[in-house]
Design a protein around this nucleic acid. Structure first.
Lengths: 212, 212
DNA sequence: TTTAAAATACATTCATGTATGTATGTTGTC
DNA sequence: GACAACATACATACATGAATGTATTTTAAA
């Protein structure tokens, strides 16, 4: 929703202003993508939403895929990284802090409207066929890293005796990943069907119940 | 992959044969949708894959959305109904039979290639914006029904004392729904990342662990 | 003969990409 | 520090292709 400075038409921008238009285009793209879906979204619509012409869009980006990938790089990747970083500083009770972190993470979906829009965009408003396929391939590394961090969590809990040794950390990691993803999708698809603030603690209580 | 009978070009079909071409178009649509994604799929591609021209396609269907909705009706809805039906006949141990059913259901994803393709189509290869929005709205009823059946399962388990009374059946239902969905998506997205046959029992062992 | 089940032909729309124009910022040079 | 030379940041105009929907025609079944 950043609108560029009200200079008269066709005036050359400074580097700063150019950066602003670039951001304006990206933000407009989030809006248009979310409303119309990535596939049906038009560069014309994006340009109009950003108060520029398609010329500006083509100056900053190669095409629609390029815009999507820029968004993916600037928003999706940092989100996962943020997630991994948050998991690094473990407390004295690994399972408990993991659970708290999951609840906190999911609860953000209800509070942070922008995060919700962006995540909804990447999870619901696009399909990763064709030219967008490379995007999800790029996140493979991030996902693997995330899995490894989670696994270490469970291993740590086992070594401290707070988690039964007959449970495979790999399985628990997979289970938790699926669980989180399912919750996110279910909520994003229909945010009014339940309150995350109320349900998230209950849900993860179920998941983390009686494992020791 | 049904190819129509090898009569010479442009021959009028009987009612049966017309029904065959309709099915051929639908099957071709599954293939093309899955490969290209619904949005990027072309009626020309679908027609070619079904060994007919676009004329035949437009004879049987109004447009691409109409094809998708036909597939949705003929494949997605029955799948959920099948799921609900399978849950109706409860054994003496509700939780145990529910767990078995979940494992069986998820395991079908590995065995039934066609099911995998279809589910992948509806979960991964399309976004429900624009004209496809009505499709998911139509499944709301089916989903609600599914949730009610699951809830009754947990209530039954509670009344038989095999499930702790302090767990809310509603929460458990939501949790299980999210869990199943997450597993399905994770597997469909990358079927080679893990073997469902091996992991499904473990995963649901985790979920259904020590609830009594 | 009529009509269902297509094939074929045609018109139109629409998004894309590119080419070009243009005014201004920027930078080196004297 | 003024000014030329160039680059940048767009807007505008245009060409193209591709997909769509419809109109017309063809063939054989009923």
């Amino acid at each position: 929703m950043l609108s560029i400075s009200p200079k008269s038409q066709n005036m050359r921008r400074t580097k700063e202003e150019a950066e602003q238009t670039r951001n304006a285009i990206l933000e407009a793209a989030v809006d248009v993508f979310t409303e119309k879906g990535v596939a049906r979204a038009t560069l014309e619509q994006i340009a109009k939403a950003a108060n520029v012409t398609r010329g500006a869009v083509y100056w900053h980006f190669k095409n629609k895929t390029d815009i999507f990938m820029a968004l993916h790089d600037e928003l999706h990747r940092p989100f996962i990284q943020d997630l991994v970083d948050g998991l690094e500083n473990t407390g004295d009770d690994p399972l408990q802090s993991l659970k708290s972190y999951c609840i906190e993470l999911i609860t953000r979906l209800e509070d942070d409207l922008y995060l919700r829009r962006v995540l909804s965009l990447f999870l619901l408003k696009c399909d990763y066929t064709g030219s967008l396929q490379v995007c999800q391939e790029r996140t493979i590394d991030a996902r693997r890293e995330k899995s490894e961090v989670l696994s270490k969590f469970f291993e740590k809990a086992q070594s401290r005796g707070t988690l039964s040794a007959d449970l495979d950390p790999k399985t628990l990691t997979l289970a938790l990943s699926c669980f989180i993803r399912g919750i996110a999708m279910e909520y994003l698809e229909n945010p009014d069907s339940f309150s995350i603030r109320e349900e998230a603690p209950k849900l993860f209580n179920v998941f983390f119940r009686k494992w020791n």
